[in-house]
Write a protein that binds this DNA or RNA. Structure first.
Lengths: 235, 235
DNA sequence: GGGTGACTTCTTGCATGCATCAAAGCTACG
DNA sequence: CGTAGCTTTGATGCATGCAAGAAGTCACCC
């Protein structure tokens, strides 16, 4: 089957570049390559059946996104975010999501509000069923809906970068924070939505920030289970 | 220890690479290559006496920073930020600087406060002398001092990316907004500092946001210089 | 036995050749 | 005169060769 790919290599054209970056990002974010793991260009090149050049470019991009660290003449490694960085990112998250909520509130009646309403209803059902997986997915959707509803592409862009770096800790959030805070979290989502429906930007921003802050606190408290691999030691 | 690694991230990378990126960025930001101008790899390679490879990597980075646009198989061009993006970026700026001011206020007595105090004093002198160049520099310093004083490296990082994209409009701010708003702006700086001295995070954040917002309004009002090259055609 | 030095190996960094593709220009035809 | 299709051109995208540097290894000397 690979033969076909080989033969058609020319026809794939630009698909290579973007998809390679996506694949690599996914592998890093999913923990397939754990923090601290080396990512040799040649290895990846063979793995994905391309030459070192596109792999190299993808790695550079990932470095820029804060997901890997390139040490010149040494190698590329999956980055280990420090505890401090996590806290910093959560502070940013609070601010950006607050901004998003405020902007969305100013937009008046938009389809996003209906989506959020349904999201909360579904969340309540998931909570009653104790379906934490579904619940986690819904929470993720809720936050992204608000950010994208801000109608500010630059905000979405920065938020995306931020969330990529927090992707690891989303796992923590979903396994530690969620079960304990489900009820409270849903209530907070509801107050955000209430403020949005009343077109109250200040209220929406404050509600959102309060919610994110509460989640973050719970998350970083629970994050003391960290240190995935023993690669925490730095030279 | 990890801090050191962190800090070096931007600075390192085999002298050629980093300096090449800096040079290119500077040329784009300064307007040496105006918006819409093509940036052929080969041309730049000869210009800087390196091969296409490092040029290519630098351009990719600049694309990631939002300064250039790479159209596959066509070429790389200096990016023209749309009016809308400018507005979006100013919204982000307000939020991030507000966050920074709040965080700085929480930090208690730090050397930054003294720096800000002196900055305002100097600004007043510059204003009396009608020295707009010096004044512009001081304003820039004031804002950056607060952001860096937030002691949040991720915030600094995102803010830097943002300001790079606004670099063009800094010129507008400095030529249009400044002269008209000098007095008001200084007063606003003073109220930010007052809140900081009182360790009032909420007050500091609000003062900062009010100030940024006022500046942004003035700036976008004056920014009607848009549509530079004719490459604006949309599909 | 401990430490120092050169070496080996593995990795990246850069240069360059070739294939590919988008767009502009030209030709021929309706 | 206009337009469709072909050709030419110029740029990127990718592959690959080569050199340089950083770590770890091993032998050798004290």
């Amino acid at each position: 089957m690979q033969e076909v790919t080989q033969l058609r290599k020319g026809a794939q054209a630009s698909a290579t570049q973007a998809s390679l970056l996506d694949k690599l990002r996914k592998l890093v974010l999913s923990g397939e390559y754990p923090p601290g793991a080396p990512l040799p260009e040649l290895f990846l090149a063979e793995e994905f059946e391309v030459s070192r050049t596109p792999v190299r470019e993808a790695l550079k991009q990932l470095e820029n996104e804060g997901l890997v660290e390139i040490r010149p003449k040494v190698g590329t490694f999956v980055r280990i975010p420090t505890r401090r960085e996590i806290v910093e990112l959560f502070q940013l998250k609070e601010s950006l999501e607050g901004l998003a909520a405020g902007l969305l509130a100013k937009r008046g009646p938009v389809p996003e509000l209906e989506i959020l309403k349904r999201n909360i209803e579904e969340s309540e059902r998931a909570e009653r069923r104790a379906d934490t997986a579904k619940y986690a997915e819904l929470v993720h959707e809720f936050h992204w809906t608000i950010v994208q509803g801000s109608d500010n592409s630059k905000l979405v862009e920065h938020y995306g970068r931020l969330m990529n770096q927090l992707a690891y800790h989303r796992i923590v959030l979903e396994t530690v924070e969620r079960p304990a805070r489900m009820r409270a979290s849903i209530r907070e989502h509801q107050s955000v939505l209430d403020a949005l429906l009343e077109k109250d930007p200040v209220g929406a921003e404050l509600a959102m920030r309060g919610h994110v802050n509460a989640s973050s606190l719970a998350a970083s408290r629970g994050a003391d289970t960290g240190s995935v691999a023993g690669a925490e030691k730095e030279a």
